[in-house]
Write a protein that binds this DNA or RNA. Sequence first.
DNA 1: CGGATATATCTCAGTTCTGTGATTTTGGAA
DNA 2: TTCCAAAATCACAGAACTGAGATATATCCG
Lengths: 154, 154
Amino acid sequence: MNEATDGTERSLKLWVVLSRAHAAIERHAQADVARHGLTLAEFGVMEALFHGGPMTQGEVQRKTLVTSGGITYLVDRLAAKGWVERRRCDRDRRATYAALTDDGQAKMREIFPRHAEAVQHAVSGLREEDQELAIRLLRSLGRHAAELNPRGGA
Amino acid sequence: MNEATDGTERSLKLWVVLSRAHAAIERHAQADVARHGLTLAEFGVMEALFHGGPMTQGEVQRKTLVTSGGITYLVDRLAAKGWVERRRCDRDRRATYAALTDDGQAKMREIFPRHAEAVQHAVSGLREEDQELAIRLLRSLGRHAAELNPRGGA
DNA sequence: CGGATATATCTCAGTTCTGTGATTTTGGAA
DNA sequence: TTCCAAAATCACAGAACTGAGATATATCCG
């Protein structure tokens, strides 16, 4: 077993444990938002607008990593539920703002704290310091992979 | 900003960077298997059979974290491509084995090394020691989250 | 101005699964 | 044996997007 093989195996192992950790935590997050009739992608849009205020759909797309067709679909669905609305953008008439309605704001104020608790519970397998460490490592890992990726940015 | 809030924010941050790192690396892995006309889920089934030998579809399901309906779909597709076949299971006649065909074996021997390289490249943002560290942290994180999860195991 | 190119969104067919429920078989209890 | 819960798979409907192309603006360059 030479060094290159070891490096390959370590890389594959890292990819596997990353996938499994992601899947396990995603199930918790998903189960939480499902109680309110939301998918994780829908919640992601709501959360972006909740914390970032009204923004163009393109900006929502960059924050949520969904395709343009997906944003149209998600905003349509959330608009049908009365939680998000489109507003025209006078500055650039190609663009459309998405914004939370009053109902959407109220809904997020209601469900966000519980969602945060669910996530906190899901990641409680690591102590505080290890969480900080994991954040630094994952940030590095993600940034580097995104830069290597033509679609990912940079 | 009290301690509980800090803990919540750290948890959410961890979930965000985990999601982004996962998505960024997944794109690399996906781009690689797509060159051979495979989805990541299909590749996951092939890989399980490549490294684990013939096994029941239920065992494949446990390894790949796909639903039972998904396994049927994936094995159907791979069988249509001639890379996987179903075999009857005499020990338990409710079950069906899935196994790589000779073509499937050859295909995996051809594409697996390159796939491993692609993953290695994607995770090269971390040095060896940090990869080892990340593996330990993510294993802990994933295991704990899976145990908390009614669907996840334990 | 006119044309070329880039950007923001939408449309829509198609892909990839998920989730529920039916079917078949097993193994144990009555 | 006969019944019954549990287990493995399959069938089917449909959810949740993706990706390519269409449309409407915007911007830049002669």
